[in-house]
Amino acid sequence: MSAVVRAAPVVVSGRPVPLIEKEVLGGLKAAFGAKLLDGKVLRPGHLAVTIDRDDLIPVCTYLQKTIGFEHLSCITAVDWKDRFDCTYHIENYYNGCMVQVTAHIPYDDPKIKSLTGLWNAANYHEREAWDLMGIEFEGHPNLERILLPQDFKFHPLRKDFAQEVDRQYITRRKLRGGK
């Protein structure tokens, strides 16, 4: 029994286990095979996999239920102008391994399954991602704005949201009152 497989949710120890990331990556590859669009080890204890958005629930269920990645740390939505990326940082408290699951989302249809069934922590993160980036999480119990006002119309973290593209310098000329 390797240190990876640990379904019990309560953690007792917290020390990094060396070479754990290779083991996890091997397990993921064995379980999902070609569904992993990309899978690589970034640093010791940290690996990144890329999947399609339809495979999100199976991969995350496998990670949580089978190999004990019990902590959903963060959900990041990135606007790549032609697509969205939704990155999930999922951590195993037992061996300190972190998996970074990236799901591609097409730009014109920003929808992805919600993870609230697996982690309650996903609730606020997904609301925030919807609020700021406009990605719709299907199956979320209460998808409404969280940080911005309820009547706000835009999703400000998208790249096409009007922002100051100029560098934030205050030049001496400006200080003196020039343009």
């Binding site: 949710p9 959903l72 982690w119 606020y124």
Partner: peptide, 9 residues
């Protein structure tokens, strides 16, 4: 509880 705490992040 510990389970709830981990699950809620």
């Amino acid at each position: 509880s510990a389970v709830d705490a981990i699950n809620w992040g």
